[in-house]
Write a protein that binds this DNA or RNA. Sequence first.
DNA 1: GAGTTTGAAACT
DNA 2: CAGTTTCAAACTC
Length: 1181
Amino acid sequence: MESPDRKDNIPAPVDQGSPFFKYLCNLSPIKSTRPRHVVQTYAELSMPPPPAVFTSPPNPNKCGGRVRRGLGVSSFVSHSSWSVDKENLPNHSYVSRSYTAVQSESSHASSHDALAYVSHQSTGIKQEVVDKNEDAPSKYEYSDVSDYLTEPVESGLYNTSKAYFMVKTSTVCEEFEFPGEDHVHVASQDEPSSSQLTNPPSANEENSHDVSGITVLPQAGSDDNLFQSGDVCSKETEEVIGCRPSCESNDERNGDGSETRSSDDSLQLDQETAAMAFLLVGEVDGEGGSGSDWSAAHQAALPEFSQQQSPDFSAVERISDGVHPRGREEFDGGASNGLVENRLAVEELRGTGNDDNRNELVGGPFGQRGVRRRCLDFENARRKSMGGGVSRKSLGQRPKSVVGPSELTTSRNVPPSVLSERAAATSDATNSCPSVGSTEEPQSNTPGQPRPILSGTNLKSPGLLRLTSFQRDISSTEKLVVETTRTVIESSTNRTAPSGIGLHLNSLTGNTGLHLNSLTGSISFSPNNRDVSQSLGIGSASKGAVASLLGISGMSGNPNEIRCEGFTTSMAGIGPGTKCFAMNSSTSLYTSGVSVPFLERNRMPSRDTTPIMDMAREIAKSNDIHPSTGGSRQSHDESRSLGSDVLDKKACPIGKKRLLHHDALQQSNLDYAEEYDSPRSPKKKRKSPTSAGEKSGEGCKRCNCKKSKCLKLYCECFAAGTYCVGSCTCHDCFNKPEHEDTVLATRQQIESRNPLAFAPKIIHAADSSPKRGEEVIDTPASARHKRGCNCKKSLCLKKYCECYQAGVGCSEGCRCEGCKNMYGRKEANEEADEKEILLEALEKESQEDFDDLSKPEHASALILEQHRHMGKDLSPITPSVQYTGQGRAIGRTRSLGKKRSSSPLSQPCGGLLQRSPTDSSQSPLNLCGDGNFSAHQNPEFQLSKIERSPNSTPKFTRISQLSPRWERLGDICTLTPLPQAPLRPTPASISTLERTGASPCFNRQSMEAVSSYQSDLADFTSLGKPSSFQLPPDDSPPSPSNRRMSQSTSRQTPCTPSLSSSAFTGKEEMKFGDSRSGQFACYSQDDDDTPDFLRYSEDAHSPLISKTSSPKQKRVSPPHFEGLREKCRGDSRNIFDSPARSSPGLRSSRKFILTAISGLPSPHSMGPTLQGHIGNSQKKG
DNA sequence: GAGTTTGAAACT
DNA sequence: CAGTTTCAAACTC
Ligand SMILES: [Zn+2]
Ligand SMILES: [Zn+2]
Ligand SMILES: [Zn+2]
Ligand SMILES: [Zn+2]
Ligand SMILES: [Zn+2]
Ligand SMILES: [Zn+2]
């Protein structure tokens, strides 16, 4: 409770200052006195405390479950971003906590157990999800999931992804009982978490916003999407009603809680938390029962969102839209609206809120609510999925379960910081405790209450709250979450539990990156690790996440940090200084890891005592200890954080091996692939035997650097953002915790040069949309290598080829010669295909008598249309051309899409399949969803297929399927750039920006960086959209030659500034992202790009900062761009200018982007995506 | 395990 | 930006 630590950490004051806090205060009668207790509060909150919230009368006005939904979605998506930006401690905390919990599980799992749990959960989730999502086919879901996950991301996606995971996991757990682990973890963590929670709320208005955002999510959740609103909703209402009772029970707990609370402060905290919870709950409720009020309020606040809502994707879009309207700020603050609403809701609750509500809120109703709702959801899900297995009272009871008063209380104590950090660590510990029993425990508390999964540990009250939040989020996220979950689950399930994990990781990781990360995505997540993770760079990320959590919660003050977490998904960038790094790194472990530590240091102390540093050290030690993959990795595992976690899990043994490399995400992907490939079902192992990783023993590969000192990208560990571990056989290694400063500085430099340097190498298209569930496709196909390969002799059939290694097909971005990538050739199809296609198209057209059509352009147009049809979203997009961006010339040539098509299509097919040949077999794909994938699994098969029909057909299909995603991705991509842009401000501007191509973001980024990023981004984007893009705009000639695209496209990406914030594709962006904070942003990367500027190691900050805030706004304006360009001209121009190629296309693309952006779904998509695709196959061989 | 090949990263 | 060098992994033997 209480832990004093917390106090320190928690900057209550700040919180108080924050509007959010104020709101809370207002709402709740209790005035927060202090945060410290918060922790307890949290617990209480989760359960009982938040009366205030309840008290506040919910405004019926707001209602709007729909809105909420939309919001929810958006919030979900944004979630990460928000967190980043705003800091929402609460959110973060929640998320982080949840995340943590999850991770912990996973981390534990790192071992199989954890995995198993996860998988179980996931499975459970899946089922539920599936049930829920009737609509969306699994595939669809997958795709969605992938998207989300991938993003991360970016790392990012990561965050969100993680969060989702967390949530899901939680849910699952609850449902399944697995929760135990969480609970367990929670317990330890709880305190911290609770504190966090409390802190958060108080701390930030922004946070609050975030919170709101969170809330929103919940709403979305309420949508039930995932859980199926129907049941859920009703349940919710019931819950609300009934739950409240449960809450009451909670209240009872409150009594207990009072204990926990001990002091008014605690109350305050509680209130805040409650408020938070409320928000969350409220949203949830919104739909469901009480929800109406909430919803109404929310709606009022967020009408836009609600309106925007639309489908799942729409959610994303909404978000983006929302963002736009509100501007990034909103986005950043995005939640703000939501927050506001939430607040309102809270107030309402207080004021008007039903007594019940109040009770709930106060008592922890929030928690309960949240919990309950969650429970409900879970229950539902369980029911559905489980069928009854769940048992537990599930339904009705569930709410409480969540809260699990007792548990909560227990958990409360734990300081948030602790939680976060510990969470990771503890989680592990907790993991150990599977807590299964825990699940029941919670239940015990309340009759109704189901299991508090949370109860287990962390969750405890806070945890619970968090969970609820998550759940809500999930629900809100709905599909997204679900999807992700599914994906994960499926993947996992398919393969093995572990694999599942891996998948998760991937997705998560992918997330992050992409975002990212995304990781940050992902990255972001790994809270668990943190402690553990510290050792690993990755862990850091996770840590970061954790830290963020902690920080956030507690204190962190640094929202940034927090942001980072969020970031992961969206951005990483949040954190200011360190954070930024972390952010950036979101993708990279380091960042997170490193940053985290920093963060921790900065902030946290949370952990009570051990500051992050300590943690890191410990971790480091642990790593060392664990030496080899296992050991080190373990740490990683722990650290793994998002991706890492996954990775770990997957690899766990594997450790890092590759994972380390590229991005965790990528790694994760790889891991997957590997896992898949190899038999490892167990994961880990890594396929390649040889691989160092395995060598090491654990499977983790490690580096063997001789001259780089592990401070260059040559070093896989470094590149992966992780510290070298004992298993590494490097010489003169500086990539160790003890050289953190050096590492970070180096990273910054590198990032300054290439913001995407640490971004996951593989971009998942994510597809978009999950919304549609249909499209399930997901496929891996969407996955691409961010930069593409440049193979000359390997024909992309060996691991020399990064694409192949990652288990993804070559894409337009690839410049390989004689590509025979089994996963997907890029071009082969492309060029020839393109031409052929074009010709064919033309011919057809002519034949058809479409004069217009007959024209090549038309033809292209036609094609595009087709694609669009297929892709759905695509249509607008088309600009695809730009996408490529990257340096390659994507050019228009591709425009036709060949590449795209090829890439997308073919790849898609291949991609999915591809995943890795090795992988493919693996299954991962399943994820992909599409049966395709699975079908393809055989690499050979795939190849054959690919070759056979390469592209065309498949493409279309994919496109259709993919397209959406892609588009979104593209959007995302665009966003990514934004990240920096994020800073940029306005959405509106965004649009312009987009058009311009330059995303404001760039400013910071030096053009160069940008350019590179862009290229990367472009890749991403392209991935995202592959096919669609190209065509439309271009229509033009598909000259293959052009392929390479001008990077210009990349710019386009930038466009979406707003998104950026959230999505950001880039991790870095993420950092920036936080617009709100601007602060962070600055530092972020911007530096990177900007070449010169950025360079400084630290610089980032300053630049970022300036940028950040400005960036967003500025960003908007092309000018920046120009400015940037000037600096970077080369790049920038390339991107932009390349006009020649892209110019038209670009423009169009830009436009598309804009649209897309609006649509943007979730950044997540980006990151995580990784999806399983990855697979990578190692070819095994 | 040594040596070769390969392509990315880094450098110019 | 292209060209070259450096680097470490992937691969071969
Ligand atoms: Zn190394
Ligand atoms: Zn190493
Ligand atoms: Zn090393
Ligand atoms: Zn290749
Ligand atoms: Zn390639
Ligand atoms: Zn290739």
